[in-house]
Design a protein around this nucleic acid. Structure first.
Length: 510
RNA sequence: GUCCCCGUCGUCUAGCCCGGCCUAGGACACCGCCCUUUCACGGCGAUAACACGGGUUCAAAUCCCGUCGGGGACGCCA
């Protein structure tokens, strides 16, 4: 593992610190992306830290799913840590804070104060009797094995004002008197041994403590995170201050809070309430290109201010600044029928169109295989340019190109074979003529173009009218890629066979 | 309840800091037209917003105050 302390000074150090309590959330993904952009834009270091101090809720499956999601995005990181492997550091810090008198033990049974939240009375600041408890009594009860949580002793009655300059929201201030005595360590059961005179050792650090200690230890210089942390920042300021002598060279990070991503009804996106639409694997599996998805997410709460929407990653990186970040929450659209924001879909289509054929083919191959098609590389390469402008999501390719791969066309309505303002007899005539023409014409675009147009003219038909029966016979549907290219990819044999199969269908309609 | 944040077309946003160039720009979606062998792409066009009320000013989307609305935090979750 790289030694953080050896990293060059003055170079920004960013971190993304997800907690593994489920799949990677789109909001988290955006936070990661913005951190990454800032780091890469400013020659900084990107740290990935798994914040897994909540043993109750964390799962290894969730860690894997976060890695899957991050890897799919294709944005790399430079250092990687797990908070659960750094508990000793957190405990040492807690002990130091306690020793300095900046924290106290709270023996109130866990969860006891929870329902005070549901009532609508004033804000809770601390549990009665705990903050004031004499040290001797506190020590005695701890030594007796009574469980306790460790709480920060927030300065009160001094009129102390906490302040910081947020990179997005500007100058922020709050009275310390309004900050509650938040927990640093959770209560533990009876200590397994008497190893600590303080009896602190079994308590798991809370998010606030672990996060700040690690930020200090990893020398994080910029914290970019969701706006839901804006008011927590005052607590973090207090912790950083208390940690000053443990990390003498550490400078309090610069903070920048991001507007929240919200559901169409304006509520915060949640895994529980909104389901799979907030998981980035849903986008991946539907056939979004990661660069398109990143593009979309960047436009939620940030603007390049140049009227551009379709932006390749390197361009976003070069353009990214905190000044471009908005303050108002951004709605991400989805409904039960259509789980994807139309703008995300449009951007994806744009990115698909921008892909070189070889790359598109590489993306398409697994999609076709998954649909059960054989999909040899050569064929996918030939098909890709024909559907590139016709699909919005990669998975659309299955629908758009199935007839290139299947042996037998799925059943279709024979009436489709009959052109506009035409009758069955006309369709029959067209197909029979086409059989003769296709049997002798060279199978390349220009030759087919010339021959088929000529045939249409000789039958006294407009090209459009003559082409429809052929298109339907060969593709099994009216909407398809341009005819000549399609015929070429299909090949003479398949085309003749399918036209031969179409003819009898027409008989019943005559 | 307490504290904090936010409020420009349906949505994402430009403009706001440093009032006039804003009869408010772009994009998505929707609608219409054109191109065209179908579909799509592309082109053109239409509809659509400064939350409200006061104030300051010759002039306010832009500055100030208030109201209303929305969101967030207030856990031994993160």
């Amino acid at each position: 593992m790289p030694d953080a302390a050896r990293a060059p000074l003055n170079t920004p150090r960013l971190r993304f610190a997800p907690s593994p309590t489920g799949f990677l959330h789109v909001g988290s993904a955006r936070t990661f992306i913005f951190n990454w952009l800032y780091a890469r834009r400013n020659q900084g270091t990107m740290v990935l830290r798994i914040d897994d101090t909540d043993v109750e809720r964390n799962t290894e499956a969730s860690v894997q799913s976060i890695f899957d999601g991050l890897r799919w995005l294709g944005l790399n990181w430079d250092e990687e840590y797990r908070q659960s492997e750094r508990l000793a550091l957190h405990h040492r810090a807690a002990e130091a804070i306690f020793a300095r008198g900046l924290a106290y033990r709270d023996f109130t049974p866990a969860h006891a104060g929870e329902d005070s939240q549901s009532g609508a009375q004033g804000a809770w600041l601390s549990n009665p009797g705990m903050r004031e408890m004499p040290r001797a009594e506190s020590d005695r009860r701890a030594a007796a094995g009574e469980p306790f949580a460790l709480r920060y002793r927030v300065p009160r009655g001094e009129g102390r004002v906490l302040r910081f300059a947020d990179g997005v929201y500007g100058e922020q201030t709050k009275l310390a008197d309004e900050v509650e005595d938040f927990a640093l360590l959770r209560s533990a059961g009876v200590p397994k041994d008497g190893s600590s005179s303080l009896g602190l050792w079994d308590g798991m650090p809370t998010y606030h403590l672990a996060s700040c200690v690690d930020d200090a230890d990893l020398r994080i210089s910029h914290i970019i995170r969701g706006q839901d942390h804006l008011t927590n920042t005052f607590k973090h300021l207090l912790i950083f201050e208390a940690l000053a002598s443990e990390f003498p060279n550490f400078v309090t990070p610069q903070f920048a809070h991001l507007p929240l991503l919200v559901a169409p009804d304006g509520s915060k996106l949640s895994k529980r309430k909104h389901g799979p639409v907030v998981s980035i694997t849903t986008y991946r599996d539907a056939g979004f290109l990661p660069q398109a998805f990143v593009n979309f997410l960047c436009l939620l709460g940030w603007s390049p201010k140049n009227d551009r929407d379709f932006l390749p990653l390197d361009e976003i990186r070069d353009l990214f600044t905190l000044e471009g970040v908005n303050r108002a929450n951004a709605v991400i659209n989805f409904t039960d029928e259509d789980p994807f924001d139309p703008k995300a879909v449009w951007l994806n289509a744009e990115h698909i169109r921008a892909l070189p054929v070889e790359e598109l083919a590489r993306e398409l191959e697994p999609v076709f295989r998954q649909a059960g098609f054989e999909a040899p590389r050569e064929k996918v390469l030939a098909v890709a340019p024909l559907i590139r402008e016709r699909i919005k999501l990669l998975r659309d390719a299955v629908q758009a190109a199935d007839f290139f791969f299947v042996d037998e066309l799925p059943a279709y309505d024979p009436a489709e074979l009959i052109p506009q303002k035409g009758v069955a007899a006309m369709a029959v005539r067209v197909l029979e003529t086409a059989q003769q023409v296709l049997a002798v014409t060279a199978f390349d675009h220009d030759a087919l173009d010339t021959a088929l147009r000529q045939a249409a003219a000789s039958m006294g038909l407009k090209a459009g009218q003559a082409f429809q029966p052929i298109r339907v016979a060969v593709c099994g549907r009216k909407n398809a890629p341009p005819l000549f290219e399609t015929l070429v990819v299909l090949g003479r044999e398949v085309c003749l066979k399918r036209i031969g199969q179409a003819l009898p269908k027409l008989a019943s309609l005559a």
